[in-house]
């Protein structure tokens, strides 16, 4: 077993164990942190496949941003585990069916080589090959329109999400920064000239 294989098994073991802990952890915050660990190990496996851009993007997007906000929300929720666990036996058959379906799909993909479906040979990596450059070239030349479409759809999604949660409250106290910055000294204070000593009353 060479070092690469050892690394793969190391990452894969931690990935599977932390994935299991995500669904078995009693504390939701622990579950989220195990999910972060799972992302790290998935990124490690992608690095082994020489997909450095995807691996780092997984870390930047999911670990760096999405999971932080996730953690943010989960920490503030008052989750009652009893009420969540109540429906366990009721939902079990449905969940099992979905799980088995995913296992079957993965098996077909991964077992493809046993059915002579070797249509995806390992790419030969030339020296000086840059993962990022290649992905950028494909994304911005061949798939420019799908890429732009995706970005427009995302923009629509952002606007929709903002409008859904936007409620005008009457009792909020908002500050207008430009008004604040435009304030001059004379708007705020009045200088009263006074003698330093009291006048001697006679």
């Amino acid at each position: 077993m060479d070092f690469k294989t050892f690394l793969f098994y190391l990452f894969a073991t931690i990935l599977v164990v932390s994935g299991l802990r995500v669904i078995t952890a009693r504390n939701p915050v622990h579950a989220v942190l195990f999910l972060v660990l799972a992302f790290f190990n998935a990124a490690g496996i992608w690095l082994l496949l020489a997909a450095e851009y995807l691996a780092i993007t997984l870390l930047v997007v999911y670990v760096g941003a999405v999971m932080v906000l996730f953690l943010f929300v989960v920490m503030m929720l008052d989750i009652n585990l009893e009420s969540i666990r109540r429906g366990f036996w009721h939902h079990l058959p449905f969940g099992t069916a979905i799980g088995l379906l995913m296992v079957a799909e993965m098996a077909t993909v991964l077992g493809g080589r046993y059915f002579d479906a070797d249509i995806l040979p390992a790419p030969a990596i030339a020296p000086g090959y840059s993962n990022v450059k290649e992905l950028g070239r494909v994304l911005y030349t061949e798939y420019a329109y799908p890429f732009e479409l995706a970005s427009v759809i995302l923009l629509v999604a952002i606007i929709a999400a903002v409008t859904l949660t936007l409620r005008k409250r009457k009792d909020t106290k908002a500050l207008n920064s430009s008004v604040q910055l435009a304030v001059k000294r004379n708007d705020r204070i009045r200088i009263v000239r006074m003698a330093a000593e009291k006048e001697q009353g006679e």
Partner: peptide, 24 residues
């Protein structure tokens, strides 16, 4: 690293975990 800038952004974005985990 070839994608050094990306790695820099990735690593620095983990810094917030130390703060959040400690706070919670």
């Amino acid at each position: 690293v070839d994608a050094g800038v990306l790695l820099y952004l990735a690593i620095t974005s983990f810094g917030v975990y130390g703060v959040i985990i400690a706070g919670w």
